[in-house]
Design a protein around this nucleic acid. Sequence first.
DNA 1: TCAAAAGTGTTGGGGATACACCCATGG
DNA 2: CCATGGGTGTATCCCCAACACTTTTGA
Lengths: 234, 234
Amino acid sequence: MPQPSDLLTRLAVSTVIFALRPDHSGRSVLWTPLVRRTREPQRGYWALPGGWLPPNEELEVAAARTLRATTGLAPKYLEQLYTFGQVDRSPGARVVSVVYWALVQSDEAARASAGPNVRWVPADTLPALAFDHNRIIEYALWRLRNKVEYAEIAHAFLGETFTLAELREVYEAVLQRSLDPANFRRQMIASGRLRETGERLAGAPHRPPRLYRYDTSAVTAESREPFMRERPAS
Amino acid sequence: MPQPSDLLTRLAVSTVIFALRPDHSGRSVLWTPLVRRTREPQRGYWALPGGWLPPNEELEVAAARTLRATTGLAPKYLEQLYTFGQVDRSPGARVVSVVYWALVQSDEAARASAGPNVRWVPADTLPALAFDHNRIIEYALWRLRNKVEYAEIAHAFLGETFTLAELREVYEAVLQRSLDPANFRRQMIASGRLRETGERLAGAPHRPPRLYRYDTSAVTAESREPFMRERPAS
DNA sequence: TCAAAAGTGTTGGGGATACACCCATGG
DNA sequence: CCATGGGTGTATCCCCAACACTTTTGA
């Protein structure tokens, strides 16, 4: 069944990774890690983390593995984004890339490993990247911003427990607009997926906010998308 | 850069094709064409139309080509669905399938080519198919039913011009529930994407309905998704 | 003139937005 | 006691579902 000509097309897996970090002015914005290419083609350019698909490894596992390899982190959210296969997207060979996108906990990302060949950059102001990776990240950003509005994924940027102000800051950073705290609170509570921990966060010079936890069991079968696991592979 | 072990994974493109056809009771329901496998593995089973990806062919073009090969039709809507790559989804070899989904005009589909190895079946009551193709079609159905509710793709089942009753019948068939004609009319008009042709459809024993046309130019840049062309490749 | 579908009008409820206002804490 | 963010109350708007009602045709 295999034809000789097929040997020319290679299959790769790449991952767009998002975390929230403060920018120069202190506001939270989206950052993404890139790796420097040490080989041709496009040597020296920054590119998405990824690699060839090992024949015995699941696609999602390969995505989580490259994520861990470049950041030292485990994804809190991981989903297939799109498969890019333009004939001319890589010079010299036909490369089809199955691309995933991931969200990682922001405080973990702050102490994520970096090195001369790994660099975090603001996702909205990218330099010129290798191949079609600019387009890919733009698409991932579009998907993230869309999905945040109808799916409950924002908590993936946060730890186990969080305040509504922290959660709101995630939404504001992703959507790039400020939200009314009062209405935001009601929307989140109305979703039925936040559980009070009973604890509060003290220390700030004002009324201490309640701490919440995201309740995975409250996701109904109707609203769940196919192929969406709670704990992504790692 | 290629490693010898990669030669074991094969890349295929398959397409889930939808058209509306009357079922035994005369109501419009979704149908999809399947092809009988004439080789191992899974010989004799019905499967999605598809084939290996030729190294010099774009993914979307390959999808449109297999669509044409099995139905003789050109897609009115074509979009990438998902890439399936489970290690064990095909016995004997690692096969990664980039799957597309397509909508074809229903009156064309009625006279679509069929043969001993091509068969149209109701998409909601499938027999046991080859590989993981049942799961794939279920996912495509889920996507179609979701997308019909927020994107304007229903007209892809119809011809150049159509009445609001015909368009409503599409929605009702896809969503499997009846819709209020009065409210449906207002929603569609409010979308701003229907243009009156000025003509009416006569012949029935009642008030002749207006004929409309879908206005592709009315799609704003903000609402458009990345990678979505108006005329799919053929 | 009648049946049936096309098309219009009207009403009420639910959710989102805007914003006024009170609460609780550290300094 | 004051500044600050946490948290509640409430009026308004808009979209949508429900449904009564009028219009227009072929038979």
